[in-house]
Write a protein that binds this DNA or RNA. Structure first.
Lengths: 237, 237
DNA sequence: GCGCAGTATCGAACATCGTTCTATGTTCTC
DNA sequence: GAGAACATAGAACGATGTTCGATACTGCGC
């Protein structure tokens, strides 16, 4: 039906794929040119095979996306598990979230796809558990723990989604870099009426050329400060 | 070229659309059957016209999505602006975020599309300004204000995205309701090894049948607690 | 050696989607 | 009434996900 175990095929004239190769090339396509570049035909060409062959490994594009996402989340999971454990669970939670965010910055398409089946199984569920495990070291109710991890994941995904917007062709081509891209919006915003858009005018300089990581870190730290408060903030016994 | 100003057309035999009708029907399609149901052909059929006619009002599907999103965000904006102002800016910010979240719960597809051009113009920018305006009443730096609103929007979007996952066909048909849907995952999770997934096992009862609004409110309150801390929490002068 | 089931591959065709082209009707203005 | 702008469509194009049927390769019993 599906899923080969080991393909020691010599692959003479015909193409021999293996699930690993399919996923690797799929991720490569996503990395190089974004989600719109991942088509069965493009993928088949990269694998040096036919279009329909891919369907032997994957039942649909949805499954391809799921597996490709899980493939890279697995790598993130390894990084997260390699993180040293300190005596402050919240610090550890912070480090994990930052690791996850870094991965999304490196692969913006991940932001949009990360929540696919998060809840279902595989590496995402494991990652979810690793995050939540830190809350077990805090003095909280089960519900508070559930909500705390939801909040952290929410901040990550929320920031990541807006980061994962498929950028206009200009910046993909490298014709326009990110700073100039931001600068254009900033310029528009500076034209707005102060009475009508007082806040936008207030923060336009902050927005112009801002660092996504700073933005994320600030949002994360707000939520974690709230969590620390909730956990009682009582130090060592 | 495009964009009619006022269409007082009588519309006898031929279909007469008007931008309003196009957007209304587009939103209706999204509401009824999710993003995958919004095709130019389905939309044309609903409007009683041809496919190509829609292109007189919008240049592309991207623009259709942008305008449809802005259309409903405009309604949210009205609700947000109708909110009474208290003497606590953070409470007001909270109320606004909850209003926004309610709108997304009612229209799950909004979660995924909300960030489209958020930053660009139209109702989304106005909404962004209304949210941020509350931070002007707090004792913060411009950067802190920028980050605070990013955090709040991040929490909203982050929670909303995972909510906006196009639900499986079963629940769209109404054959399976949300509680049962959650229950299935919960059942899978309960089978997991406690040693391997201690956190998932800890919160599975919380997850089963949980309320999205509670989850969101908890995440929001964590971030707002952090913000309150940052703002100094010094009451009236 | 032979057949045969399972494994693995692929070309061609299909339906659908966004989009474009071209033509036609409608309404307003002079 | 003629022409310009507005407004509407049908048909076709190219791309995409997907299915179908045919074909090859592999390991195994005999």
């Amino acid at each position: 039906m599906a899923r080969p175990s080991s393909t020691t095929t010599t692959g003479r004239r015909r193409a021999s794929h293996s699930m690993e190769a399919v996923l690797t090339e799929a991720v490569a396509l996503l990395d190089e040119a974004g989600p719109s570049a991942l088509t069965f035909r493009a993928l088949a060409q990269r694998l040096g095979g036919g279009v329909a062959s891919i369907y032997w490994y994957v039942a649909s594009k949805e499954e391809l996306l799921d597996r490709a996402t899980d493939h890279v989340v697995g790598q993130v999971l390894v990084e997260v598990e390699a993180l040293p454990e300190s005596d402050d669970p919240i610090d550890d939670l912070r480090a994990m979230a930052l690791t996850l965010f870094d991965a999304i910055v490196a692969r913006p398409w991940l932001g949009a796809y990360f929540m696919r089946n998060t809840v279902v199984q595989g590496s995402s569920l494991r990652l979810y558990d690793r995050l939540g495990r830190q809350t077990l070291r805090l003095d909280l109710t089960a519900q508070q723990r559930f909500h705390a991890v939801s909040a952290v994941v929410g901040v990550v995904v929320g920031t990541a989604v807006d980061l994962g917007q498929e950028p206009p062709q200009e910046v993909l081509d490298g014709a326009v870099d990110r700073d100039e891209f931001l600068g254009r919006y900033a310029a528009t915003w500076r034209e707005l009426d102060v009475e009508e858009f007082p806040f936008v005018r207030e923060i336009v300089d902050e927005f112009d050329g801002h660092d996504d990581l700073d933005q994320f870190r600030a949002a994360l730290d707000l939520a974690l400060a709230g969590l620390r408060l909730q956990a009682g903030a009582r130090g060592d016994p």
